[in-house]
């Protein structure tokens, strides 16, 4: 029981990971891990990136994926360095201030990075494409666009999270059955009382 805010010793690696993730506005561990791997794997990757032309995300466009409703295809045009993955985001206000929900990375091909996303809510939404410096996690370039999402499917269905209960119907039937029995018992008891009172009074004389 120690008072609320207190400094916590944090393992350095974890701290670093979080820092990277936070600075990038990422929290999807895949994305964070991806960034880390990229940073670490680079045979002088960071240096190479820094030396090359700085990437610029010029535009992002959103369009329905043909034949795959309600999926949306997000496309970002990148100039300059096109080897670094582009991260896509959608803005949510579910928890107060607008926050970027990471939708995943995509590596540009011929200057265009595309990602397919299955919307989980509808409304006029802001989509962002950004490239972060793999070494620092800092976003160096981004572009945003609005798009009105009209169809969505829930991200995780609650049924999928459920343990099946195959006996449920049986239970429902049983409750009705039991109520009927209880009703019958009360009816029988009352009828017995009625029968005795009437019958005895009626047959008082032989």
């Amino acid at each position: 029981m120690t008072p609320t805010p207190r400094p916590h010793p944090r393992p350095t690696a974890r701290l670093a990971a979080r820092l990277v993730a936070r600075l990038a506005g990422l929290a999807g561990l895949t994305a964070a891990a991806g960034a880390l791997i990229l940073a670490g794997a680079g045979t002088g990757g960071g240096a190479a990136w820094a030396a090359a032309a700085t990437p610029t995300v010029t535009t992002i466009s959103v369009a329905p994926t043909p034949g795959k409703a309600p999926n949306l295809t997000l496309s970002a045009t990148v100039t300059g360095d096109t080897a670094t993955p582009v991260d896509f985001y959608v803005t949510t206000t579910l928890f107060g201030n607008p926050q970027l929900v990471p939708l995943g990375p995509a590596t540009p091909a011929k200057g265009v990075a595309t990602l397919t996303w299955t919307p989980t809510w509808t409304g006029n939404e802001t989509f962002t494409a950004a490239v972060a410096n793999p070494a620092t996690g800092k976003i160096v370039t981004k572009a945003a666009a609005s798009y009105t999402v009209t169809a969505a499917t829930p991200g995780m269905s609650t049924a999928q999270a459920n343990t099946p209960k195959p006996l449920a119907t049986f239970g429902r039937g049983m409750v009705g059955f039991l109520l009927a029995i209880v009703f019958a018992i009360w009816a029988t008891l009352l009828a017995t009382l009625w029968r005795v009172s009437r019958g005895v009074a009626k047959h008082a004389t032989t």
């Binding site: 029988t188 008891l189 017995t192 029968r195 005795v196 009172s197 019958g199 005895v200 009074a201 047959h203 008082a204 004389t205 032989t206």
Partner: peptide
């Protein structure tokens, strides 16, 4: 006691009911 006189009919009714309950 509903005018009980222990007539045979009364006995029959009562013993049937007691048995049922």
């Amino acid at each position: 006691s509903w005018r009980w006189r222990a007539t045979p009919a009364q006995r029959r009714i009562l013993s049937g009911s007691v048995g049922l309950v």
